[in-house]
Design a protein around this nucleic acid. Structure first.
Lengths: 117, 117
DNA sequence: TTGACATATGCCGATATAGACATATATTCT
DNA sequence: AGAATATATGTCTATATCGGCATATGTCAA
């Protein structure tokens, strides 16, 4: 079995640097494909393919506008990513080793309320 | 060129579901490889390889303890992921189209204080 | 209709997986 | 030393990329 498809979820879609840059560019306003390609300095077909991936995981919406297709951000799909990562916030905000010991102590006592920051 | 290596950064390392589960299991306490393998119900070699990836991006530390190797979380590498994702929070927390207009207005004014939730 | 412009898709090549399995390496115990 | 336990690594297979290029599809204007 190979790596999971990039279209499987937002985590995989966002693992690609160019796709992250695309999403950043779409903050605040819609953009046509060519504009994105120019901004990222990547070929138009490549841009279209990245956009397709982003579309398939729902991070981006398309809107026809004449001969252009305007892509817009739909950041809701990033919320699960945020939820997952934020669960680790306490572990990078504090001195790791001391927290580690602290939690271990609590666990040995059999308590489950050791999540205070 | 193929997809970026999983070892290239935290984004890629975390794109793999099993690796995310490993990190979650390491919250609060260190664990030896076999314990992780059992908990995840995946083969030990596979677990070791995932841990290797996590080690190479610095999300995990190892400590020798007799014949065991205790893996511990080092969540600092997740902070960049968090930073990136949090930049989109306003876009999933508010009505997209109205916010879109709002941000556009701010940008035209040249202000940068529009991050209030 | 023909042409210009914008975008999507198909094909190819090179590569990096993830999983399964066998095995090497290291440590502890007897 | 030899066995048992814990972990890491090498090999093989199947697959899903990502990028480049050519080309199909679609829209608008003259």
């Amino acid at each position: 079995m190979a790596r999971a498809a990039t279209t499987s979820d937002a985590f995989n879609a966002v693992a690609e640097p160019q796709r992250r840059r695309i999403l950043v560019l779409l903050k605040g306003r819609e953009r046509p494909v060519n504009e994105l390609a120019r901004a990222l300095r990547i070929a138009q077909p490549r841009t279209s393919k990245h956009l397709r991936v982003l579309r398939e995981v729902g991070l981006v919406r398309v809107r026809e506008s004449g001969q252009q297709r305007l892509y817009g951000l739909d950041a809701r799909g990033l919320e699960p990513v945020h939820e997952w990562v934020i669960g680790f916030e306490q572990y990078w905000n504090e001195n790791f080793d001391r927290l580690n010991e602290y939690v271990k102590t609590l666990q040995q006592k059999g308590h489950a309320d050791g999540n205070r920051r």
